[in-house]
Design a protein around this nucleic acid. Structure first.
Lengths: 223, 223
DNA sequence: CGAAAAACTGATGTATGCAATATGTTGGGG
DNA sequence: CCCCAACATATTGCATACATCAGTTTTTCG
């Protein structure tokens, strides 16, 4: 039994965060994790460093690293960036996707549908819907965009965990399949538009209001 | 005299790479750098880790980290990503830029012009033109995009160092000012279009051909 | 002489020990 | 009874020592 690499540890912690096992605010204590994975603090520190670099965790000097709690403003930034990138991305994907790619996409949305209809697999669904967008980046063949999308998806998953309205249907069930339809039809414009509205739907299904919680007007409260 | 933070060391090394002091392929020897900055290897490792994460350096296991030499394919990926992101970015910037922002942009292009006309400041110019694009991201107010653009600009600087045709004018002198004009005129469409062609100009000014150096056909050579 | 093995070199990978820091707690004085 | 100071605790930050590995030179033997 070989020792886990810091990369593997990074993956394990990240997965735990995505699966809601480590909710936002949880401190990632180095020595504790080191014991758990039977490695030294050094490797754990490295893994945590990467999480911090990707904004999944936040470092407070001399205090420790904590699973990030993106503010509503940061959440809006993430969705803004996604709306900036992904519609264009899917437009080009529609042009260069091969039948093999379409097949991959179909298989993926099928897995999403399965996870959606099977009870007790909701957190899996969050990861899966994120993976759909990453898959699109992978089809584009651009490793830089893959990395960017991975980062955005991880943050989005955190945001959904924080701001999801439990009763709200945050991801209309047919938007991903319809996107694949547009891609298969080589209709880049429609795909881009669908992606744009899809991202808007996801964002608006969250309870990100009020715009600025810090802007509570003390004077008016005690008037 | 306080010890430098790993962040400061990261900046110092990055700056050295941008200024062509550490050309692609240079090994970043941890202990040597540690001596130079009067810190332990630990901090240097952290700094190098970040460079590797941002693709500025490349790690070869058990051998060390080296300043990256992006391949022509990777270079094309970078420009593809930039064309995907930056036209849209500048379109929104055109909508929300304040007079103060315009002033900042004007000041920046003035500095660029100065560096261009002063001999012996060419490498400064590469950094400055990159900073222009980062400044645009900062004006958008989106910290995620700032980080993404920073990464793309660092890589672009490396690419220019590697593939620049020395006699070619790789950055037409008036494209940045014209972009600012369009932003000031609140003409998002024109700004987006200018940005797109600007990035195409930069890419095409490089000697990225042939597409695949490994595809030398031995048979045809000795026919 | 030539090739394979062995020792050498220079660097990374990893664990660990200690100092510095933030926070919580306890006890004493006003 | 409350507040502040000193102590106690938990955890990070940093340096260092040692193990490991890749590449290179030297040695040895056919």
């Amino acid at each position: 039994m070989r020792a886990l690499s810091s990369e593997a540890i990074h993956q394990r912690i990240l997965a735990a965060i995505m699966e809601h096992k480590l909710p936002p605010g949880t401190q990632l204590v180095e020595e504790r994790l080191a014991r758990i994975f039977s490695v030294s603090r050094t490797k754990v520190r490295e893994a945590i460093g990467r999480l911090v670099h990707d904004r999944i965790a936040t470092n407070i000097p001399n205090r420790g690293a904590f699973v990030s709690s993106p503010t509503a403003d940061e959440a809006r930034e993430v969705f803004f960036a996604r709306r900036l990138i992904e519609p264009n991305l899917v437009r080009t994907v529609a042009q260069l996707a091969t039948p093999r790619h379409i097949q991959q996409l179909r298989a993926h949305v099928a897995r999403e549908a399965e996870a959606r209809t099977t009870p007790g697999r909701e957190h899996e669904l969050i990861t899966l819907t994120g993976d759909f967008h990453i898959l699109l980046a992978e089809i584009s063949g651009n490793s830089f965009l893959v990395r960017t999308l991975r980062e955005l998806e991880s943050l989005t998953a955190l945001i959904i965990l924080l701001y999801d309205a439990p009763d709200e249907q945050h991801c209309a069930h047919d938007e991903h399949p319809r996107l694949v339809d547009a891609i298969e039809a080589r209709d880049g414009e429609r795909a881009a538009l669908l992606m744009h509205t899809h991202l808007e739907h996801v964002e608006h299904s969250l309870k990100l209001e009020p715009p600025e919680s810090s802007e509570v007007d003390l004077e008016s409260v005690f008037a």
